[in-house]
Amino acid sequence: MSSLAIAIAVNLVLGGVLLALLLARRGRDEVCLGGASEAIAHFRIHYPDADGEVSVAADGRGALIELGGGAVGLLERRGRRWNARLLAPGDVRAVDVDGGQGLRLRFADFSWPRARICLDDAEALAAWRARLGALTGAAARPPRQETRHA
């Protein structure tokens, strides 16, 4: 029994290495967002009635959407797929500025622990940092105040 398991595991690892080689040959063809309307269209696949003001990431790899009602929409690229989440108060664990151009987000969600959003406009970066900071567990508890630029 265990020798069978080991044999299969070895085959799998060999298969994985072979695949990695094959895929590395192939190169990447990842997708990028063309604009706000494309971002909201992708987001609505998961949240059909969503609407709001969209900030598309500078590198086209994601977007943030001000949904109203206290929630923020996040769209992020996973290779050639788009992933969407509605972030409510308490869902964000930490927000850090990453190298001056991006936001590094950590979430309470075990199945989506972190994300990075690249924003090249300093004003937008500061505004989103404050907005997402207001969704962190500590900030979410008391009734939310006007977001303050950090």
Partner: peptide
């Protein structure tokens, strides 16, 4: 997709 397939492995 490379990362997806490696995750499968």
């Amino acid at each position: 997709e490379l990362r997806d397939t490696l995750a499968n492995v």
